[in-house]
Simulated scan of single mutants.
Amino acid sequence: MPATPAPRIPAWPPKSAPRLFVEQALEAGGAITLDGTQAHYLGRVMRVAPGDAVIVSDDQTGEWATRVVDAGKRSVTLEVVERLREREEVPDLWLCPALLKKDRFDFVLEKATELGVARIQPVITRRCVADKLNLERARTITTEAAEQCARTALPELEPPLKLDALLGEWPSERVLFFADEEGGDPAADAFCYHEGPAAILIGPEGGFDDAERAAIRAHPQARAISLGPRILRGETAAIAALSVWMAEAGDWLGEE
């Protein structure tokens, strides 16, 4: 008579476990108590109970498996069990997108985070339809996107800068690729031969005006690139450029 196979032990923590970023530095054996929106999410939305797993990152030490100790109405206490991954190294790429209408810029923040950008530096140009950004709300969007895509490193998010200030303060060691609807080197070609720190500048609805384009082209670190034969919306251009970068010079290439 064949032996009865041993029951299969489910993996722990399960892949379906909720993910959160926390401000507290994590260490094995420690405990953290969450309140506010995070406690509401775990307790009321995900309905966690004692013994359930929650995967937590602190943007410093990496990703940790935790176990629910107590799930109350106003707070949830977690025991830190073990580190699952070190904090990831993301490509040294900044995205400098011109501000767009709120819903479209929200989309840029979310997808740039998912695609793995290291820093987001919003830019104000003459044709921008917006000149302000709620940074607290924007950081909530990037944090939730990082949780959704299992990033262990949050992108840096800076306050908006006017274009002339951006160009005046630009670091000399970082190449600034800018998507120019009037033409430039094909993005894939420009990216695949580049090594070192880089950034991608994306214009607003309506594009850069003539004076802005001239100022960018005159900058010693600027390189004009083309994103194809069609004129793209600002949010489409940002996602397309980041996708090409990750494929040609980023972390889609896999290990050597």
Rank of each mutant, 00 (worst) to 15 (best):
P7Y: 04
P7S: 04
P10I: 08
P13G: 05
P14H: 15
P18E: 13
F21T: 11
E23A: 15
T37C: 02
Q38G: 13
Y41S: 07
Y41H: 10
R44C: 00
A49N: 14
A53W: 02
V54I: 04
S57Q: 11
D59F: 03
T61P: 09
G62W: 10
E63M: 03
R67I: 15
A71T: 00
A71Y: 02
G72I: 13
E79C: 04
E86Y: 02
P91D: 11
P91M: 13
D92C: 08
D92T: 03
L95N: 01
L100G: 10
K101V: 04
K101A: 12
K102E: 12
K102S: 13
D103W: 14
D106F: 08
F107Y: 15
L115W: 05
P122F: 01
I124T: 06
R126Q: 14
R127W: 09
C128E: 08
V129N: 03
A130M: 11
D131Q: 11
L135G: 06
A138H: 02
T143N: 03
E144D: 02
A146K: 06
E147K: 06
T152G: 00
A153G: 00
E156Q: 15
K162S: 00
S172W: 05
A179T: 02
D185R: 15
A188C: 01
C192A: 13
F208P: 13
D209I: 01
D210E: 14
D210V: 14
A214R: 10
A215R: 12
A224L: 08
P229G: 11
P229C: 04
I231C: 13
I231G: 12
E235C: 08
E235H: 13
E235A: 13
T236Q: 09
I239W: 00
L242S: 03
L242D: 02
E248T: 11
E255S: 15
